[in-house]
Design a protein around this nucleic acid. Structure first.
Lengths: 243, 243
DNA sequence: GCAGATCCTTGATCCAGATCAAGGCGGTTC
DNA sequence: GAACCGCCTTGATCTGGATCAAGGATCTGC
């Protein structure tokens, strides 16, 4: 499943970090690492290891012992939870700059799977925890971030519990757009690295309803469906639906 | 709305703490305070202030500036979020021992309302933050707790997105029972301090569906509806439904 | 004890979204 | 280029829970 490769392009592999390192890391300013001074960054870097995954690769699985935390530097990941009976729910999607393992539990509560070629900064959990224990402001930053995630989870609960299919889809598109903008990706078309089934499982809908809703929004010129994503044509309309 | 009274029983009111203080606090061991040494507890105590609220009183409201954090020592609280159009979603219920304001955001993201007579330990946010900044292991404890809450939020998302009415209600009853057990309240009857509408708004159902589902479970002898709560008669059956 | 309010239950009907059932459309393989 | 596969779309039908509409049960104040 998980394809842990080091130096995939045949580059040298001192800790898998052949490029500029943390200081030049393009997600540095949008990620947890922004809490650190350059000294600390160097220390963090020595703990980290660049790892890549192929599409469909598993970063980690639910109930598995949590041996590491991750910072995504490239690609997109889906985060899901399984019910004993096989139903699945996609808790969310992690993009460039997102940090996985915030809460640092003993065992993972979710499964993380690559949707595209993914590159991460991987930190051994023990070493990372030990660093955090010594750097209260890093912990502070993690905690703030956890609070933010809790707020997002609340938004998502409200969405799941109290809204119709069209509202859900519109809100999903806008939220994703917002996240891309935050990390500086403001392309005309909104990339959808996940499939329709993933969107359905994220919104508590079926794949057919997601497909139909997107088709309708397209027919009504609120969006334009393009290969690999959608173009958002009528933002005000979408905001009216999903806001 | 909020009825902030001090020494409601005519007792003396040094910081509203006329009883034994933190050391004898009955929620001490199940709350965040369990992270503290007795010295620290004393320091915490000097920051705290006992406050009571009448049923329907507001502890704090969504979007309001967050001026304090709270530890519930008596009663039950509903936590809700409003949509601009007036729909509401009950994010959860806080019971004895629960801590409100974990993430310590600038502004509250939810509204907290007393369901019964409520007593809390109230800490000024500034002072509490300053204490946390000096006590990394308290922050550590808060962060662990936030991680736990995040896990609960995920459970709730799964519930909202992927389950039918009967599953939702059964799961709600079992979860609540689990929480009562954890804080040492193992009465035969499960108290339901919240109304049917609150349960509905928590589970993404209507009040009619909640009422009908409870009635059906009662008719089928899985539960017994009693004033102020329910008795869980057939736990295995409920677990099969809600598990 | 009665008027009113609040909360809960029950029944009848409706509808959004699920389910069932075919295709369609681009890749990939050989 | 034919066969296959993994996705996505579209149509027809069904259904669980929403909505609409009455009551009933408690409690509160007077």
């Amino acid at each position: 499943m998980s394809s842990e490769t080091c130096a995939p392009n045949g580059q040298s592999c001192r800790h898998g970090r052949s490029e500029g390192g943390c200081a030049e890391c393009k997600v540095r300013l949008v990620s947890v690492c922004a809490a650190l001074t350059s000294d600390e960054l160097a220390e963090l870097e020595s703990l980290s290891r660049r790892v890549t995954y192929n599409p469909r690769g598993t970063l980690f699985a639910q109930d598995e012992e949590a041996s590491a935390v991750y910072n995504i530097t490239e690609g997109a990941v889906r985060l899901l939870r399984l019910l004993p009976d096989g139903r699945r729910h996609v808790m969310g999607f992690a993009l460039v700059g997102d940090f996985l393992g915030l809460a640092m539990p003993e065992r993972h509560t979710i499964t993380a799977e690559a949707l595209s070629p993914v590159t991460v900064c991987r930190f051994e959990r023990r070493a990372f925890q030990e660093l955090v224990a010594r750097k209260p402001h890093l912990l502070q930053r993690l905690h703030e971030r956890a609070g933010y995630e809790l707020g997002l989870a609340q938004d998502q609960m409200l969405l799941l519990g109290r809204r119709g299919a069209e509202e859900k889809v519109a809100s999903f598109l806008l939220t994703l757009r917002g996240r891309y903008v935050r990390i500086g990706l403001t392309s005309v078309t909104l990339e959808l690295p996940m499939g329709r089934q993933d969107i359905a499982d994220h919104l508590g809908l079926t794949i057919e309803t997601v497909s139909r809703t997107l088709t309708r929004l397209d027919r009504e010129k609120a969006i334009l469906i393009v290969p690999g994503g959608v173009r958002l044509l009528d933002l005000p309309r979408l905001e009216r639906l999903g806001g």
